[in-house]
């Protein structure tokens, strides 16, 4: 047994130190989760704060607002995931079909620029465009005669999901495409040439070479992303949200911010964090198992 380990000493050398670092910075701080089971107070610290068992979790599950917020979170994440996924792959394939190098590179560079624009700025642009008071969307719709009165987009709660997803899509599409382009670039060139020799058309090449070539990476990213369905962050929802759409815009991270950290109730916030981790892991494991069984892919 030891002989096997010894023979792999180089691999061990290349892995153990780095894993140690990762474990140090990611797993060691998890002792903080104990705060979820205490009535943590900053002044008393971990050692001095009284134990409270599962009371914070009970509070969480008893709160009606929690379920609403959870629904919003999962729906918006789900929509973004699908949009991003489909969009990024489609865009990568389309860009791959472009022969003119300059055009291809330029478009690709341009599409990821919004990724660097902060949400504060993007939200302003979105809100400005949708404004009933001189916003471009309303202007165009009225000029084309589709509507008589400007639409108050941001007042309609149920539209929030669509608006948010589209805004996020606009912002992140280009950046998400990068990795798929990299994968396509790495695909075996011979395959395409052989297909050409066989008289394959553009779409046939896409279907039989590009897409299968992308699948492993795409599946991997999909599985990993599923685990993050519950982690939406809150910046975009906060900036685009208001009193009229709050029932659709409030997500779990925003709820956590409002009801825990901003009022100094760390325990509640950590309880939510623990809950989120549990859900994430559950999701990732389930999707991984499904992918293994049905598609022969796996992340682990």
């Amino acid at each position: 047994m030891y002989r096997k380990w010894l023979s792999q000493y180089q691999l061990l050398l290349m892995s153990i130190p780095f894993m140690a670092l990762l474990i140090l910075f990611t797993y060691v701080p998890l002792w903080g989760w104990i705060m979820a089971f205490q009535d943590y107070s900053l002044s008393k610290g971990i050692a001095g704060s009284p134990f409270s068992g599962f009371s914070h979790f009970a509070d969480l599950f008893r709160d009606d607002r929690f379920y609403l917020v959870l629904r919003n979170t999962m729906v918006m994440s789900g929509l973004s995931l699908v949009a991003d996924f489909v969009g990024a792959i489609a865009l990568a394939l389309l860009l791959n079909e472009v022969r003119a190098r300059f055009f291809k590179r330029t478009v690709q560079t341009i599409t990821y620029i919004p990724h660097f624009v902060s949400w504060v700025v993007m939200a302003n642009i979105v809100l400005g465009s949708l404004s009933p008071d001189g916003g471009i969307v309303n202007d165009v719709l009225m000029k084309l005669g589709f509507i008589d009165e400007p639409i108050l987009f941001m007042s309609k709660g149920s539209w929030f999901w669509a608006i948010h997803t589209m805004a996020g899509f606009w912002k992140e599409l280009g950046w998400s495409t990068i990795i798929y382009l990299a994968v396509i670039a790495g695909l075996n060139h011979d395959l395409y040439e052989a297909a050409d020799v066989d008289g394959a058309g553009r779409f046939q090449k896409m279907w039989h070479i590009s897409i299968p070539g992308l699948m492993p990476t795409a599946m991997l990213l999909l599985i990993l992303a599923t685990g993050n369905l519950i982690n939406t962050g809150y910046e975009s929802q906060f900036l685009l949200g208001n009193g009229l759409n709050i029932d659709y815009s409030q997500v779990l991270d925003l709820y956590a911010l409002d009801y825990s950290f901003s009022i100094g109730d760390y325990s509640y916030g950590v309880a939510i964090s623990v809950f989120k981790s549990a859900i994430s892991i559950l999701l990732v494991v389930s999707v991984n198992m499904a992918a293994r069984r049905f598609g022969d892919f796996k992340a682990f």
């Binding site: 949400w119 962050g233 809150y234 910046e235 911010l257």
Partner: peptide, 20 residues
Amino acid sequence: MRKPLLAMLSVVTAAALAIS
């Protein structure tokens, strides 16, 4: 796209900054 942990934290605090 998934980013390392620190980057996720940065989104959280970018928001906090925006709010504050």
